[in-house]
Design a protein around this nucleic acid. Sequence first.
DNA 1: CTGAAAGCGCTTACAG
DNA 2: CTGAAAGCGCTTACAG
Lengths: 358, 358
Amino acid sequence: MTTDPATDGRSPGIRPRPSTVTLRDVAAAAGVSKASASRALDPTSQYVSSELRSRVLEAAGRLGYSPNASARATTTGATAMVAVLVSDIRDPYNAEIVHGVIEQAARSGLVATFAGTDHAIDDEIRAVRMMRSLRPHAMILTGARSGTTVSRASLEEELERYTQEDGRVVIAGDDELPFDTAVVPRRRGASELVAALFELGYRAPAVIRPDHDSAAARQWEDGIVETAGRLGMRIGSDAVVRAPMTRDGGYDAVKGLLRRGAARPDVVLAATDVMAFGSMSAMRDAGLGPGTEIGVAGFDDVVGTEDVTPALTSVNLALARVGAAAVELALTKPAAESRRVEFEPQVVIRGTTPVRHD
Amino acid sequence: MTTDPATDGRSPGIRPRPSTVTLRDVAAAAGVSKASASRALDPTSQYVSSELRSRVLEAAGRLGYSPNASARATTTGATAMVAVLVSDIRDPYNAEIVHGVIEQAARSGLVATFAGTDHAIDDEIRAVRMMRSLRPHAMILTGARSGTTVSRASLEEELERYTQEDGRVVIAGDDELPFDTAVVPRRRGASELVAALFELGYRAPAVIRPDHDSAAARQWEDGIVETAGRLGMRIGSDAVVRAPMTRDGGYDAVKGLLRRGAARPDVVLAATDVMAFGSMSAMRDAGLGPGTEIGVAGFDDVVGTEDVTPALTSVNLALARVGAAAVELALTKPAAESRRVEFEPQVVIRGTTPVRHD
DNA sequence: CTGAAAGCGCTTACAG
DNA sequence: CTGAAAGCGCTTACAG
């Protein structure tokens, strides 16, 4: 293509290009100007005769034309792209959010770009800088981040700079950065779980919470404790156990709980599904059927809840919807102050928490 | 910024921009030409006095300059980006590969861009088309894809077109597309697992394979059966069970196996870790200790192998390295014919397969 | 080592 | 409705 003598004779600043089809080629093939070709290819443009449009479309198809997004971006100022900064894509919790982002972005005609930040706020600052170069419409931050107050401040500063260039920043999570936020409904989910279990007849929950303190853990526990208190369920201080966020953590916690022999709980609430799996094993090993003798509920509903027997009651946080909502927030005009959208979490009652009669 | 009268007076084709700092601003602030500023900012450029360079760098830092990657890409012809087409980011298997891609891309100064393809080859074709617009240096395809032969052909055609534009295509997986491939060492991993178990004294494996046929399942089974045969381990036809790829699938498979009461296997090989977890439960329920009475081994080593008791023997496929290798392949000059790189998988012996004496 | 100039592939106000 | 022209923000051969 590009046989136009004006551009063919090796001009300064230009290295030989592979044979890429450009708008100029399409226009020439269709016998119209670049301007018309450009308009014909833009589905929102109205000032094109349908005859001309179809001729251009035909030529573009025939030549295998792929518009150059970079060139487009340098004239329009922004790339049809949303940049996602994610602490660790391997965390199923993040993967679920990211999935929602990708889907919604595609629906909105945007591509999604990622940078890993490894939970470190300094990496995140670097990532913001790198992403800023691409001039994406928006940046979405997800996943927990840790760092000093000072690096936190420079992260905010870097993001602030980006918003001054018309970029939009959205948080997907439970963070307290001063930007629009698609909230992960942890607290509410925990609260609704307790309410649902109360309905089913449970009155004496034990609580297994992570031994490592985090915003997420706090929100879960707050939701549990606050609602239990409001409904008049009593959680004794010896019915709250801290444990590592693993299967064995859940196992040991319940084992300890049962050995102590104090008032036996009628349901065990674990902060994650994996901990709940361990809890179920511990019950079995103590001769107690999960669901039969003692109820069990997990949280997050991301992996394997249906794969155990009986299936595990959990709370689905609609994480993919959170990701999608983040994209949608990014696409609406910015408001005077930062907004928060929050979805209904879904309590999913399964075999480990049957109706309790007694 | 941009107070230059030449550009300030609203020229045609240009909408008002937000206050973005451009190279021109940096050059002006440093008192040099745009050309010099550009060279000073390029760390590989040698023809710059260090005095000028530091002045430019200082100005850029002070102004918070972020180079416009799109503008850069339109002059150089390609974006410093690698595009990843992934079937489903929520699959931990893919997430691990993608993690490796992100890390290696960052190390190489590239950003990673993603599109989800949902296992459908038609989505993938769409994604290639979309990504092609961004002119990334390379596209990396990962995850299983299904589709008719004809759509498979048009996927190849679309990718072919991309390579003609100097794009590089790399497969991360076990697919048989005619491009450079970073191989997921399934077959070899299965083979080495069997060899390791043989060393430990196991002689009579049972095999639990997915009931749904896939390239991955086939490679695993081939590796198992071929090596067992070579070592003289015998796998009776009643010792091969097909089961759903879930925990319960593994549970039921082993239950059936034990009930049949035929020659009891000394080790159960499951195609995935999750199926192995189910197998362990089934043994326990039958009064047999996993690892004590019968050995158990999973495959993939992605989630929770350390969280069960005893910990599960598995095979680590070095998926993050596969992802990283894909990026590296994409960064080397294309060879005459397509290359394959393959890593050593890592057999990880844990508590479920102790040395066997008898 | 440095600067002026041309050009990348687009889009869009402006004038028909 | 259509085209000629200017401009986006860069990079790089060319000439000092």
